[in-house]
Write a protein that binds this DNA or RNA. Structure first.
Length: 309
DNA sequence: AAGACGAAAGTGGTTGA
DNA sequence: TCAACAACTTTCGTCTT
């Protein structure tokens, strides 16, 4: 889905014409067609009360993977109106309901249970709905391919959630998911690797920058320090200090250095705890940062500044 | 007394023969 | 399938503030 464009990429003009009938966006100055074949999401009818709406609406609720039947299922006789029927007819509906209950296949029942668990864990972690949706989709695919066999349902749910987090770049560490789901960290890692491999889901290596805001918040750091940490991190990436290293360790070290520079000191212990790494790792990364980025000069200056006061 | 530092040994996972 | 290996952890003793 393309973003909203406010400027013409050709001439930089902001004089854009939106032609809804053709579904195009055109630059008034240079005639460049910025967007074509747009989809009109508006509805061509209006509703003035519920009844009109009921009649004119042509679709139902959005399809979703977080419901076991994707929100498309039909429950026989779920409405109250069966009580208006004669007793004979009514019995027929009761029988049908019973059968519907019976024919639910094993897969559906499994999904129902698993998605409830998924919902619970994602609520606990306060994950955005898009991530939850994606995780549900991954899990559904995994079930259909029979990848759950031999593994506990919960661990596959956790693995799907982790994969989904990674794809949406809202990284939660394995530790956090492990804590929320009660599954062993290694187990989640194993199933995560297994299902992403089997389902052919490609995942970019996680970017340390994504961790900064969350860590900074739980350390109650100022926005300035947070920005500083990101700067340091970007320099580190340019200096190729980040490849092959654990992203959380690098994020933690950058934050630690940023706190020193901005006189908002946190102990290594504190930073290590929120990032889920050890002090030793922070120390190692931190030493590399100082050495390679020549940040030590900047640090010394700051310290002298503080002493001079 | 707490925090920072560094050495040494151990762990789980990847890689290459 | 196994050994080498890199990253990270745990543990512990020492130094600094």
């Amino acid at each position: 889905m393309s973003k909203y464009i406010k400027k013409c990429p050709e001439c930089g003009s902001i004089n854009l014409i939106v032609n809804k009938d053709k579904g195009e966006v055109i630059c008034k100055d240079c005639g460049f067609v910025i967007e074509e074949r747009m989809i009109d999401f508006s509805q061509e009818w209006r509703e003035f009360d519920n009844q009109q709406g009921e009649k004119r609406r042509r679709t139902g609720a959005p399809m979703t993977y977080t419901k076991f039947d994707r929100g498309l299922g039909t429950d026989i006789g779920a409405g109250g109106d069966i009580y208006q029927l004669q007793s004979k007819e009514r019995n027929k509906y009761f029988r049908l309901r019973k059968w519907q209950h019976r024919v639910s296949t094993a897969i559906e029942r499994n999904l129902k249970l698993a998605l409830a668990e998924l919902k619970r864990v994602s609520n606990f972690l306060k994950l955005p709905p898009a991530v939850e949706e994606e995780a549900a989709r991954i899990y559904t695919m995994a079930v259909q391919r029979g990848l759950v066999r031999g593994r506990s349902m919960e661990s596959v749910v956790a693995g799907a959630l982790y994969a989904s987090c990674r794809r949406h770049e809202v990284p939660r560490t394995l530790d956090e998911i492990s804590e929320a789901s009660g599954i062993d960290k290694k187990e989640i890692g194993r199933t995560y690797r297994f299902i992403t491999r089997e389902l052919g889901i490609r995942i970019l290596p996680s970017n340390p920058v994504d961790y900064i805001p969350r860590f900074a918040t739980s350390l109650k750091l100022s926005p300035e320090t947070q920005t500083r940490a990101v700067e340091i991190l970007e320099k580190a990436q340019k200096a190729e200090l980040t490849s092959g290293r654990g992203p959380t360790g690098i994020a933690a070290a950058s934050l630690y250095v940023a706190t020193l520079i901005n006189n908002e000191k946190r102990t290594q212990r504190e930073v290590a705890d929120v990032a889920g790494v050890t002090e030793v790792t922070i120390r190692n990364r931190y030493k590399e940062l100082l050495k390679k980025l020549k940040l030590d000069k900047e640090l010394k200056r700051k310290i002298e500044e503080a002493e001079g006061k």
